[in-house]
Write a protein that binds this DNA or RNA. Sequence first.
DNA 1: CGAGCACTTGATCTATGTCAACGGTAGTGG
DNA 2: CCACTACCGTTGACATAGATCAAGTGCTCG
Lengths: 192, 192
Amino acid sequence: MSQPRHALSFRPGTPIYGIGVPGLAWRVERGSVRLDGNGTPGEARFASLALPGDIIGSEAMLFGTYAFAASALTECELSPWPEGAASARSGSLLRSLATAQRRAADLVALRGGEAVRRVIGLIRIMANSNDDAAQHVVLPTRQDIADITALRLETVSRIIKRLERDGMLQPVRIDGVHATRSFAVDFGRLAV
Amino acid sequence: MSQPRHALSFRPGTPIYGIGVPGLAWRVERGSVRLDGNGTPGEARFASLALPGDIIGSEAMLFGTYAFAASALTECELSPWPEGAASARSGSLLRSLATAQRRAADLVALRGGEAVRRVIGLIRIMANSNDDAAQHVVLPTRQDIADITALRLETVSRIIKRLERDGMLQPVRIDGVHATRSFAVDFGRLAV
DNA sequence: CGAGCACTTGATCTATGTCAACGGTAGTGG
DNA sequence: CCACTACCGTTGACATAGATCAAGTGCTCG
């Protein structure tokens, strides 16, 4: 209906846009977004991860429609991009290109090597994307982590439980109940 | 055909540029290029793959120096980018951004799922990058394929030998000797 | 209250990693 | 020309990280 001149919020798991539909490009302001290409029968196949500062859906500026589907991994907030006509200039695009390439390289690293390293790598990336000096992460579901790291959800579950026991992750308590996706992180406790 | 002005050629395995050094951005005209970030002690860690049409080193336009090292996977040819001042405008950059994202999604797919599928996926990508109607590929070394697909070179070797036996790959003969990296490809022979 | 998620945990299987040996080819220097 | 070395690729035997199958818990939502 009304053009979203301001930021939009999405709850974890919510679809943001689908493949092939027309729309705008967005800038991720808070939270994390998952992009999916179409797999075998139309099944969603993980394609990329977007964190605060990343631009998503820019292909729609070129082709008119989205080439990937987007959904919220964690609670997140998006604002239309570019903000003003002026910022569509080379500088801004060049910067987006550079961060996209860096993000892609990080993603590649998350899908090779020992399983524990991959999960820790993802936690590190998501924690860093947070400005907080006090390290704190909100992770996606175990299944989403599994899709990102090319592992199985059972494996991810076991690994995260182990990191909790080792003290690297401390589940946030809400009314005495352990959250399953919110953690205080202590990267010092790595070399166990 | 005349060569594009000032295009450079590189032999397989040759370094193109290193991390942290100043330089230009390039467009891959022919062949394939591997990009590496710095791993643990300065070891090269595979970060990305560039094929004809891709732009590499654009981050140097922004920061002055390369963020990744580049080396030739196969015989390849690069030309400085952008060619003219005019083409540095939004259209060209937007296009680069879109292809970079698509390439990144492909790469992610190459690092998950069954080993055979990954290798076939890479072969398909490299064969498509070739304009030839007659399907023909020149692959990188087994080790490079292993780095790209996050497998081990022994595994890659076994898989490729199997694809040869299944008839999907037919090694090119030169003076009666089988080449180890040049193949005629028959994707029809997949469902074996 | 029941259904459906999201997560955990155990037992077992297997695709792929690891280790090791060997052959071919290209390059290099005498 | 012939060693000699350095890669690159192949192949076998064996080990294991992670997948797979299965069962059960507790939350949330309607």
